[in-house]
Simulated scan of single mutants.
Amino acid sequence: MAFTTTKSAFWRGVRDSAPFLLVSGPFGLLFGVLAAEAGLNVPEAFTFSLAVFAGSAQFTALQLLQENTPLMIVLVSALAVNLRVAMYSASLTPYLGDAPLWQRACAAYLVVDQSYALSVVKFETEPDMTVPQRMAYFFGTNGLVAPGWMIATITGALVGAQIPESWGLDFVLPLAFLAMIGPMLRTPAHLVACFVAIAVSLPATLLPYNLGLIVAGLAGMMAGAQAELWLERAAARQTAKRERQS
């Protein structure tokens, strides 16, 4: 589809992102409920979502804050969980790197899974888009999701404040992470990274200040990277062997 104006590109991004409300809405609601369960009031929960705007990092930080973890460890853990966003930003730079600085700064804040996935596919399939049109489309992918996340957070915090503490909603937090991780395990390298992180995390619980989370995450990433290299080399050897036999 050819984009004739930046306005049409923006609204196309809005339309393409609409289905993601079915995912971001419930997770934002869950974060608000758990934030209230953790003792945050509605303005604090809203400010948390507004300042961070990164679902998995918010859940991680919230869990560590509940356990009275030192602030530096909370920040490092949240950043570690969100490292993928740095790769997203690097991937988008060839398409958005020539935009004005203020636009790139706003885009950096709005880089999340959904905005990246939609934008990079659109930019690859529509190479004739101008930089303003690309930026408009990118902002459009957050036109519904970002406000929806904030509204869901406020709603969840309002509801969560009325839920008795005896309900033990903090148990929902690990379930939420399982729901997020499950669909991401698509390759053997992903599975290796997951199970190595699990294996390391069990003895790593003995480390102080919840450092086990960081240690397990690093171990999982290294194991996944090594597994991917091994699989690529094995595939290359198989290809070379078939070529020699033919």
Rank of each mutant, 00 (worst) to 15 (best):
V76C: 10
Q162T: 06
D128T: 14
I181S: 00
S17W: 08
Q238W: 11
A99W: 12
M184F: 04
A9E: 12
I214E: 02
A80P: 00
F195G: 05
K7I: 03
T6Q: 06
L169G: 11
P183G: 10
L144Y: 00
L231G: 00
A90I: 07
P188Y: 00
A179D: 13
S8V: 14
V33C: 02
A146K: 01
A61G: 04
A227V: 10
V192E: 15
T239M: 10
L118A: 06
E67Y: 08
P188W: 06
H190F: 00
M1S: 14
P208Q: 07
W149G: 00
A86W: 13
T60E: 13
F53I: 01
F31P: 12
V74P: 04
G32P: 01
F139N: 05
T205V: 11
A236M: 15
E243Y: 14
P164M: 05
Q162V: 05
A2F: 09
W102R: 10
S8E: 15
P147W: 06
G140H: 01
F59N: 07
Q133M: 08
F59W: 12
Y95R: 09
A18Y: 12
S115C: 04
T125K: 13
A204E: 12
F53R: 00
A176F: 12
V76D: 05
L169R: 08
S56D: 11
L173A: 13
L29C: 10
G156S: 05
R242Y: 07
W11R: 05
L229R: 00
A236Q: 11
R244G: 12
N142W: 04
G160W: 02
A219M: 01
A219Y: 02
A45S: 13
G28C: 06
V81C: 07
P100W: 00
G143D: 07
P43M: 13
L50D: 03
P208M: 05
L22D: 03
M150P: 01
Q238P: 08
T93C: 11
A219K: 09
T6A: 09
E124V: 12
A45T: 03
V33I: 07
N41T: 04
V74H: 10
G212E: 06
R12C: 07
Y88S: 09
A189S: 06
A179K: 12
G13P: 01
L110W: 01
Q133P: 05
G143Q: 04
A146Q: 03
F171M: 11
D113K: 07
M180I: 14
D98M: 13
V33Q: 01
P188C: 08
M180R: 10
A38M: 00
V14I: 09
A193P: 00
L178H: 10
A45W: 02
V120A: 11
T5W: 06
E243M: 14
V200N: 11
A36C: 12
N68G: 07
